[in-house]
Computed example of a mutant assay.
Amino acid sequence: MSDFKQLSRSVQGLTVLVTGAASGMGRATARVFAAEGANVAVTDISAEGTLAIAGEITAHGGTAKAWTLDVADREQIVAVVNDVAAHFGGLDIVVNNAGISVRIAIDEDGYDEAWAKAMAVMLTAHPRIIRAALPHLRKSKSPRIVNIASTEALGATALHSPYAAAKAGVTGLTRSLAVELGREGITVNCICPGPIRTAITERIPEEHKAIYARRRTALGRYGAPEEVAHMTLSLCLPAASFLTGAVIPVDGGLMARNA
């Protein structure tokens, strides 16, 4: 029997770049990593939001810096990723979290524009960010990529076809890159959040949330952004070195429930 192998469960000193970090799951992810001692690159299209979250982190003793980033802009991606690596002396973890809400019927005016925007922000941005980050990740001792998709990629809702298609694309991208990058020790995994309390779901009346959660989830409630963020953290631990290509629902049992 081989000797017990001690594996690190700490991200202390590692650098993580989080997109869409000004609110919701991105904000929670930035805060969770910072609390564990990581250097956090807070990126979002909202300049005010990134500054606020970076300020929250530093006020609590963490290490963070804000960057304004429109993930639909290829040139901004390259510039920000390289600046993050230069500022912190490297880049170890990428969390592709940025997303938008898209609700439109297939025959509605403006569908083509909605489709293009959904793909640009929630699918095309991912490989662009990963491509920009790869030279830095290849220098890391614990390189990790986590893509945030949705349970809409696993079981869709009417009027969300651009959103569902983009998120399904993220799951395919994740598996493909896990195979492609695996021999380099770079793990690529995907989280599919279910009903989570974020700015996107804030507009849903509380009574409707309660009815939906009781009917659809095993736990009978909506999740908190921090519950997704902690799964993201788990996938990025140095000890999570043999987990790659996984698509993990964090959905309170939504996909497990038959009726």
Rank of each mutant, 00 (worst) to 15 (best):
K65R: 13
E36T: 04
M255I: 12
N82V: 02
A149T: 09
R74M: 08
T151R: 00
I100N: 00
D109N: 09
S140G: 11
A246F: 10
L7E: 14
E108L: 13
K117P: 03
A132F: 10
S23H: 07
R197H: 15
I45C: 03
A218G: 05
A158S: 03
A133Y: 09
D70W: 05
G253F: 14
D73M: 11
T43M: 05
Y163G: 08
R128E: 14
A256Y: 08
A218P: 07
I248A: 09
K139L: 15
L137K: 01
A224I: 05
R175V: 09
L159W: 04
I148W: 11
L137H: 02
E152R: 01
P225F: 03
I186P: 08
G55N: 08
F4D: 03
V102E: 05
I204T: 14
A259R: 08
I200C: 00
A52G: 00
D112A: 13
E207F: 14
T124P: 07
S101C: 05
W115D: 07
S161I: 04
G253V: 11
G253C: 14
E207M: 10
T19E: 03
Q76P: 05
K5R: 15
V247S: 11
F4Q: 04
L91G: 00
I106F: 12
T187R: 09
A224Y: 09
N96M: 15
A59I: 02
A166K: 00
A156G: 07
A52K: 05
L237V: 09
M1E: 03
A213K: 08
A165W: 00
F88P: 07
G223P: 02
A79P: 04
R131N: 13
S8H: 08
N258G: 13
R175E: 10
V95D: 10
C190K: 08
H60A: 15
S142H: 12
